[in-house]
């Protein structure tokens, strides 16, 4: 039996799950699906989920990746939790701006800023 390697790294900061992506490109459909499954498990495993997703080092993403982030945001919201995004490179932030997703996601420059009021 083989197990797919995890696509995210998670560390706990005073009850907040801080997530980094393993891959620099979040465009492969299989990778995106796995990231979605792992993030949803993280959200479902917390009583009141608090998640910070760090985009530092991410070079590419696709609209399918945005879809996964929206699903995770919706799931966290339905459980009275929060998902915050940080460290988004300029060209990727432009994708959020074009799609107006910067209006539904709380975004910050750094992990430390994202943790303020969450941890």
């Amino acid at each position: 039996m083989s197990f797919a390697k995890s696509q995210i790294r998670v560390r706990d900061e005073n009850g907040v799950s801080c997530v980094e992506f393993v891959e620099r490109s979040i465009i492969d459909e299989v990778v995106i699906r796995q990231i979605g499954d792992e993030l949803l498990r993280l959200v479902d495993g917390a009583e009141k989920p608090a998640v910070v997703i760090d985009f530092s080092g991410v070079q590419h993403l696709s609209s399918a990746a945005l879809g996964v982030l929206i699903n995770v945001h919706n799931r966290a919201k339905s459980r009275n939790g929060q998902v915050r995004l940080c460290g988004i490179p300029k060209n990727i932030f432009e994708v959020f701006r074009i799609t107006k997703l910067d209006r539904i996601f709380h975004t910050c420059d750094t992990v430390a800023q994202a943790l303020q009021g969450l941890a």
Binding site: S63, G67, N74, V95, I98
Partner: peptide, 11 residues
């Protein structure tokens, strides 16, 4: 805005 699909063409 909170629907997870349908952004490819606009991008």
């Amino acid at each position: 805005l909170e629907i997870p699909s349908g952004r490819g063409i606009m991008l």
